[in-house]
């Protein structure tokens, strides 16, 4: 059973290059698959072009699905990451 959580982007610039880059670097630390869903458009959080192509803006609600051996740890740490960076 995958772990899911949602967060709302509060950065006025949205998911711009630097936080997107940081997110991808963070996501690549985990073995679990991490999928972002922005209102029906999905992206693999380990792929920079996919994450940037989401074009997530301030106020967008992102559903995050983490699935794999370290999913609980990944979900917990990613939640903290989002809070701090986006």
């Amino acid at each position: 059973m995958a772990t899911e959580f949602t967060f709302t982007i509060s950065d006025p610039e949205g998911m711009h290059a630097r936080p997107a880059g940081r997110l991808v670097e963070e996501a690549q630390k985990y073995r679990s698959s991490i999928i972002l869903d922005d209102n029906g458009t999905t992206a693999d959080a380990k792929r920079i072009f996919a994450v940037m192509a989401l074009g997530a803006k301030q106020g967008d609600v992102i559903d995050v699905t983490v699935d794999g051996p370290d999913q609980d740890k990944a979900a917990e740490e990613l939640q903290a990451f989002f809070k701090e960076n986006l």
């Binding site: 290059a17 630097r18 880059g21 940081r22 670097e25 072009f49």
Partner: peptide, 16 residues
């Protein structure tokens, strides 16, 4: 400097 981190991620991006 972080710009170049993003460039490195692009270079390794599986889709690219």
């Amino acid at each position: 400097a972080e710009l170049f981190d993003t460039h490195r991620l692009m270079l390794k991006d599986p889709d690219y």
